[in-house]
């Protein structure tokens, strides 16, 4: 929550000038596009007659009705309590998106037919690759972050070279380099392990910086208090510093994990049968591209949403000691 002013001001969506200007904007945008040929035109048939014959009058009427509906909507939502407002706006946006996808005339039977396979093979592989990379990346990140904060020249040099290199290269090239480059050294690894390796190294490099910032954000006094009791470096790090750094680390870490979940689709270039790969290969021969892509998109979204929920749970868990 932002800092809340103690002086209550009138709700923004109930101010006449705001509602008027919103109406103006929506009205102008709707006038710009000729909507008489769309579903809106059909809905307005009782008023404007045959939409295609209505001309400027029909265009004007449609824009006016949309503008009024929109403004009425936001004014009414303005009366609801906070939680209801959030829920209503979410549902409305979701409905709009579904209506948008419906306009594609997707073949639902095709989706239902392929969905089970998409989940049992694609989703499972994606989750497997992401989860293993997540654990590996966290371990790499903690070690590299401590190395970057240490006064040991070798540790610092190796860690900073690592972060610079793996943050500086596109993930796609890293994946190719590991899959095609390591065999040159005589190390042949399969597609899935090399995908996991590439993801872990890349995400680990980003998370190194997150961990470093988190550890540095802890007051020096905590180190001093801990060391003065007699705790060693490891104990201080594990029991005193990291638990306090976690609340700072979690939001950016959630970010990184969500983007990694989606970056795992790049592993498809190695022929790993994960979600994006399957969506493309199933859609291509039957020209049902859109069906599969949208289904995959929805599945990615649901998985990201799960990570978001996990993140907010964790944040709430660590907010305990901050409550007054």
């Amino acid at each position: 929550m932002l800092y809340q002013d103690t002086v209550e001001s009138e709700v923004l969506v109930h101010r006449p000038w705001f509602v008027a200007s919103i109406f103006g904007v929506v009205f102008a945008i709707c006038l710009m596009f000729n909507l008489v040929g769309t579903t809106f035109g059909e809905l307005m048939r009782p008023v404007i007659g045959d939409p295609l014959q209505s001309g400027v009058y029909g265009r004007f009427a449609i824009a006016f009705v949309i503008g009024v509906t929109f403004c009425l909507n936001i004014v009414l939502i303005g009366f609801a309590p906070l939680k209801a407002q959030i829920g209503i706006v979410w549902i409305e946006l979701l409905t709009l998106f579904l209506a948008f996808f419906k306009a594609f005339n997707l073949s639902l039977p095709f989706i239902w037919e392929n969905l089970p396979y998409l989940i049992t093979q694609g989703v499972v592989t994606t989750i497997y690759v992401s989860a293993v990379s997540l654990v590996c990346a966290s371990v790499i990140a903690i070690i590299a972050a401590i190395a970057k904060l240490s006064s040991n020249g070798f540790a610092y040099a190796i860690a900073s070279f690592y972060t610079s290199f793996f943050r500086g290269l596109p993930l796609l090239i890293q994946i190719y380099l590991i899959y095609l480059g390591l065999p040159q050294l005589g190390i042949v690894i399969n597609a899935v392990p090399s995908g996991i390796l590439a993801l872990s190294l890349c995400v680990g490099a980003y998370m190194t910086e997150i961990f470093r910032a988190g550890i540095q954000s802890i007051d020096r006094g905590q180190w001093e208090a801990s060391r003065s009791i007699g705790f060693g470096f490891g104990l201080t790090m594990r029991r005193i510093i990291l638990p306090q750094a976690l609340p700072v680390i979690i939001p950016p870490m959630g970010n990184t994990f969500i983007s990694m979940l989606k970056d795992s689709s790049l592993v498809s270039v190695l022929g790993v049968w994960e979600l994006t790969f399957l969506a493309r290969t199933i859609g291509q021969p039957t020209f049902h591209h859109m069906e599969m892509l949208i289904t995959a998109a929805m599945i990615y979204w649901i998985m990201s949403a799960c990570l978001e929920v996990a993140q907010s749970r964790l944040e709430r868990h660590y907010a305990r000691s901050k409550a007054r």
Binding site: G221, Q222, E224, A225, S226, S228, Q244, S321
Partner: peptide, 14 residues
């Protein structure tokens, strides 16, 4: 050797 600091330095997460 016990040490008490100016700014307490209690561990806030415990």
């Amino acid at each position: 050797v016990g040490m008490v600091f100016q700014h307490f330095n209690l561990f806030p997460h415990m």
